[in-house]
């Protein structure tokens, strides 16, 4: 394993350069979403699952395809509907006849058995199906008829959901949302970005023709390097302070949150901060890394109070305020 060998300065530099290359490849396919690509890459190298939320037509599916194309990973897609069954995702046993003419039940693997899985409109699937999916995400395995089938490693799930089409959907419960490392909002591109997009994707889809810039082995190596990034105790303490600031009991003031972020959120914050530091070419995590990654990591892990929801308060705006105050105190 690469992590066990002596890492040199050039190893870090190579990892940083590879990340930069991957980022440039994605930016060539998806125009006007630099911030989104950065965060997606960070979550991807951190080994976490990503929840993309945005209006239809903003390129969520293309982004997943582009990532699969740029990394050379096998990519599978699940389009969620209310009649989608768990077995449609995980797989099921079917009766087959072997060449000798004998019949037996064989487990046919579902689309979840791929390194990179795009689950489109995840909130349209029933809670039963969602639960099967999210169990696979957490355990990295599928159990069927008493037999455990491991999922490929590394394993990533990119789920998308539409924030406006609420009718006929099943919003993900908080416990399941917590399984996603980050929740990324896909913003509407700027005017300049729209014009650029027309130039490259009017008649063709560049994400489908993207050549791999990294192979799986290199990707694993970068992930291992990312785990070597130094986090000072003072930074860890600051991360804890930030997490506790989202909790109503420890925030010190009138909180808009009913529930704060979980300890898993703290782990996610530091994991993503490490890769953010690597992307910046640093060997150590900075306070700014935490500040940059706090919003995508924490936004789906907090729950607004009923009063705040009735007042139309957005959890993002409250979190931004908390992060700003936290940063000014350090």
């Amino acid at each position: 394993m690469k992590a066990s060998r002596e890492l040199t300065e050039s190893d870090f530099q190579d990892a940083h350069d590879d990340l930069r290359s991957l980022k440039q490849a994605l930016e060539s396919a998806i125009v006007g979403q630099e911030g989104l690509i950065d965060r997606l890459l960070i979550a991807f190298i951190s080994g976490g699952h990503v929840l993309l939320e945005g209006l239809p037509g903003l390129g969520k599916t293309h982004l997943a395809k582009a990532l699969a194309g740029a990394t050379g990973l096998k990519f599978s897609r699940v389009q969620c509907t209310p009649d989608l069954m768990p077995a449609d995702i995980t797989g099921s046993e079917i009766l087959i006849r072997d060449p000798q003419g004998e019949q037996r039940l064989d487990f046919q693997r579902g689309p979840i058995f791929a390194p990179l899985v795009l689950v489109d409109e995840v909130n349209r699937a029933t809670p039963k199906t969602q639960s099967a999916l999210l169990e696979a995400m957490q355990e990295h395995q599928v159990t069927h008829a008493g037999i455990t089938h491991p999922l490929p490693s590394p394993f990533w799930v990119m789920a998308t959901q539409n924030p406006i089409e609420i009718e006929g959907t099943y919003p993900l419960p908080e416990a399941q949302l917590d399984r996603f490392l980050v929740k990324l909002n896909v913003e509407f591109p700027s005017e300049a970005a729209l014009l650029s997009m027309l130039d490259i994707s009017l008649d063709d889809e560049p994400s489908e023709h993207l050549q791999p810039v990294l192979d799986l082995e290199r990707l694993v190596s970068i992930m291992a390097t990312g785990r070597e990034i130094v986090i000072a105790d003072r930074i860890k303490q600051a991360a804890v302070t930030l997490l506790l600031a989202t909790h109503p009991a420890t925030s010190g003031g009138t909180s808009h949150f009913r529930y704060g972020a979980s300890p898993r959120g703290l782990q996610a914050l530091l994991k993503t901060a490490r890769i953010h530091a690597l992307l910046q070419g640093r060997l150590q995590v900075d306070f700014d890394d935490l500040a940059r990654m706090a919003l995508p990591v924490l936004r789906h892990r907090v729950l607004l109070t009923i009063e705040s929801e009735l007042d139309g308060i957005n959890s993002d705006s409250i979190l931004r305020q908390i992060i700003q105050e936290w940063r000014s105190r350090i």
Binding site: A232, L283, F287
Partner: peptide, 20 residues
């Protein structure tokens, strides 16, 4: 960017530094 802080912590704790 926390390089000073991280380096000081390593020197202050006087533990055998890891490779990174």
């Amino acid at each position: 960017h926390a390089l000073f802080l991280s380096a000081w912590e390593i020197t202050a704790f006087r533990q055998a530094p890891s490779n990174t």
